[in-house]
């Protein structure tokens, strides 16, 4: 594993613009990862998502499952000592992907298997589709 570092901040800039957050305000204490309810399901820890943004490791970041597992529960945001909203940054990364690839992460068909409350359907469509 070796990452060649070079300035590659197009993704970073877009994510910061969408989220209104400063990625470099994060000092990588890991408190977000320590409390994330979804961390057991994730391939990258939440703090690593920010780390890859800081490093400009865009490919590794855009490939991860983590951003699609974030449930926008705001636990990380509520406890971040630096007041960084990782919840917003996650949304920023998701939106960059959705907007650029135009690929939905879920189709209404997949959600037809059982009877679901509307609030679940609408929220999922909002978060996972373009």
């Amino acid at each position: 594993m070796r990452l060649v570092l070079k300035r590659q901040d197009d993704l970073l800039k877009k994510v910061e613009e969408i989220s209104g957050e400063n990625v470099f305000a994060c000092y990588q204490c890991g408190k977000c990862s320590a409390g994330c309810p979804m961390s057991t399901e994730m391939d990258l820890l939440p703090n690593q998502v920010i780390r890859l943004l800081q490093l400009g490791a865009n490919e590794q970041l855009l490939d991860c499952r983590t951003i699609w597992l974030c449930a926008s529960c705001f636990t990380c945001t509520a406890r971040c000592p630096k007041g960084v909203s990782l919840t917003r940054l996650m949304e920023g990364v998701r939106l960059v992907l959705l907007r650029t690839t135009k690929e939905d992460q879920v189709s209404p068909k997949e959600m037809e298997k059982e009877f679901l409350p509307q609030v679940a359907l609408i929220s999922a469509l909002r978060k996972f589709t373009t």
Binding site: C29, G30, S33, L44, L45, P81
Partner: peptide, 28 residues
Amino acid sequence: LRGKVSKVFQREDKLVVWGADTISGMAV
């Protein structure tokens, strides 16, 4: 462990500590 703790709570007579070890990249 290099990382902060996010939550501590009681389970029976123990205190459960949820932390992170950013060196191994694991929540603990």
